[in-house]
């Protein structure tokens, strides 16, 4: 990485601030679902996120598939927005559970920071469907209240959601009502806990401290404080 690199590096050109096709998609969806849509987010030139209410979850799929032409089921999964109480499990030096620091004693109480299209609850379903004829795609999100982790199943609309819902069920503990066979998909039948939740400890990291980022080697021909990044050196 010499200095020529910086010269030849092409900056990403500015995409149009308004993405008409995606805005139109959002507009159509808003028209068809009206109350069901909680929030939308369009990243111009990139993607669309639509957050719907749980009651409109299946209706959204129906509208997308039969009226909007999104026939291709891409994936369905869930997100746990609650920060892990164990820290990043990354570098033993700053591991929060091993060495609690004064600033963040209890991450669990920190306010939820959710991603695009927002979110109010800890668990969020998200799914993605594509329209293969026009190569459009949309990501659908749906908040699940903490005390009632259930959602209606997508199987009648997209049969491919079957295994994805089973995976989300065993990994996050979300129950899909109407699912014909909500057994565990990957985990053994007697497995307890929901591994993909942020408060599920990753045992391997608990038992053996991980060397983490302090071991990052220097690039060849680079001196100690060379052109290494400023932001990374603090860790």
């Amino acid at each position: 990485m010499s200095d020529e690199t910086a010269v030849e590096e092409t900056p990403i050109e500015d995409v149009a601030e308004v993405d008409e096709a995606r805005e139109a998609l959002v507009a159509t969806m808003t028209e068809k679902l009206s109350d069901g849509i909680v929030e939308t987010f369009v990243k111009p030139g990139d993607d669309v996120w639509i957050r719907v209410s749980r009651d409109a979850w299946v209706e959204t799929a129906n509208v997308l598939k039969s009226e909007m032409g999104f026939g291709f089921f891409n994936f369905l999964s869930a997100i746990d927005w609650k920060p892990s109480p164990f820290g990043r499990d990354m570098d033993s030096q700053v591991d929060l559970a091993m060495n609690p620091t004064d600033e963040t004693t209890d991450v669990g109480d920190a306010p939820l920071e959710t991603g695009y299209a927002g979110g109010d609850t800890r668990f969020q379903l998200f799914a993605r469907v594509n329209d293969v004829t026009t190569a459009r795609a949309v990501t659908i999100k749906c908040d699940l209240p903490d005390d009632d982790l259930t959602a209606p199943t997508w199987i009648p609309v997209y049969p491919g959601a079957n295994w994805h819902e089973r995976e989300a069920a065993e990994m996050f503990g979300i129950e899909f009502t109407g699912h014909p066979n909500l057994r565990k998909l990957y985990l053994p039948g007697e497995f307890e806990g929901y591994p993909m939740r942020k408060d599920f400890a990753l045992l391997a990291r608990r038992i053996k401290p991980w060397p983490g980022i302090v071991d990052v080697e220097q690039m060849p021909g680079e001196d100690e404080d060379g052109d290494a990044s400023e932001e990374g050196s603090g860790a």
Binding site: T5, V216, M219, E222, D227, A228, S229, E231, G232, A235
Partner: peptide, 11 residues
């Protein structure tokens, strides 16, 4: 070149 300018520790 084959590498863009990226920080050494990637955030």
């Amino acid at each position: 070149p084959i590498m863009a300018k990226v920080p050494r520790i990637i955030k």
